[in-house]
Amino acid sequence: MAAAAPPPPPTPVPEPSMGPSEDSPLGHPIFTRIRLATASDVPHIHKMIHQMAVFERLTHLFSATESSLTSTLFSPTAKPFYSFTVFLLEVSPNPFTDYVITDPSFTPLVKVINLDLPIEDPEKESFTTNPVHDISVAGFVLFFPNYSTFLAKPGFYVEDLFVRECYRRKGFGKMLLSTVAKQAVKMGYGRVEWVVLDWNMNAIKFYEEMGAKILQEWRVCRLTGDALEAYGTTD
């Protein structure tokens, strides 16, 4: 699967608030929620992974199906934060009232952000999760545990971070990655790490602004495809 590739760095946005203040008008509020994804979200996750492959120019490597994602990400034995985990970012023009906790290990994070202009989403219909409450998916982050022998602590590895095009540069990518980092701190983990394509300077700048160190001395090594399958035929 492709390495993590977030949207370009967000422009400054107002601090999230729960309503208008005496000093500024309400503007255009967008209500956001980060929650644990479930198997029913796979169609939306699959479409976003394909959009990410297009962005990364790696569609020739894209072979995931809804069925394969469901069986690997949401197996009956999978436990959030101790296996593959997906945070889903949902948005709505209305306050969230369907507070459904899909797993007791994580309470959905709800915020409202005031924007200068409304967001036009040409794909809204195909990314709707709750048409009654006008809720749609704006992005996701997929991560899983790893381990540092130097720290003698587990950590999280972020495989994918993606925000749909019309929602970029609003701070949503930072919200998703920050939620992973907060969960790592909550669990006493030692680090959160990921990789970035060397040509994606917007992503590199975004990560550096979040305080991440870009490790120039490390290179990713990967066995996949025929090279990996060859080991299945050796003694």
Rank of each mutant, 00 (worst) to 15 (best):
N146V: 11
E159A: 12
V110Y: 04
S67H: 08
V180E: 00
F140T: 04
W199L: 09
F144W: 12
Y167R: 03
K111L: 14
L177M: 14
M187L: 15
D134H: 11
A64D: 09
T77M: 06
V195D: 13
G190E: 07
L197G: 14
Y99K: 14
D160G: 05
I119V: 14
S136K: 00
H60Y: 08
A181D: 04
F74Q: 03
P95W: 07
T102S: 10
F156I: 01
D134P: 11
D198M: 07
K111E: 06
Y157S: 07
P131A: 11
S178C: 11
P154S: 15
F172L: 11
V192Q: 02
Y167V: 01
L177W: 04
F84H: 09
Y99G: 08
V141G: 02
K182I: 01
Y157V: 08
E123N: 15
F172D: 11
K170A: 15
T102W: 06
T85M: 01
C166E: 01
D134G: 11
S71F: 10
T65A: 10
R168F: 13
I135N: 06
T129I: 10
E90N: 10
V180M: 01
L89N: 02
L177F: 05
G173Y: 00
F162N: 03
D116G: 05
S68R: 05
G171D: 04
P93H: 08
P131H: 11
T85S: 05
F150T: 15
F74R: 05
V137Q: 02
F127R: 02
N94W: 06
L117F: 12
P93Q: 05
G155Y: 00
V196P: 05
L69E: 07
F74Y: 13
F143D: 15
Y147T: 15
S67L: 08
F96M: 07
L89H: 05
V185K: 10
G173H: 02
Y82M: 05
G188K: 12
V141P: 01
P131T: 14
R164D: 02
L89V: 04
L142E: 09
L151I: 08
V91W: 01
P118G: 05
V158D: 00
E165R: 10
V132I: 15
E123P: 03
S71P: 10
W194L: 13
P118S: 06
S67C: 04
Y157T: 07
P104V: 06
D121W: 01
F156S: 02
E90L: 10
G190Y: 11
V86C: 02
T72E: 11
F81M: 06
W199M: 08
T65G: 05
L151S: 12
V91R: 04
L176A: 01
L73Q: 09
K153E: 11
F156N: 03
Y82W: 04
W199D: 12
F150E: 13
D160A: 08
V163Y: 04
I119Q: 00
S178H: 08
T59P: 12
V110C: 10
S63K: 08
V158P: 01
F96S: 09
D121V: 00
P95F: 04
F84P: 07
Y167L: 02
S126M: 02
V100A: 09
P131D: 06
V141N: 03
G155M: 01
E120N: 15
V100S: 13
F74M: 02
R191P: 03
L115G: 04
L197A: 15
T149C: 12
F140V: 09
F62E: 09
L197D: 15
E90D: 11
I119D: 00
V112A: 10
V196T: 14
L89K: 06
E193Q: 11
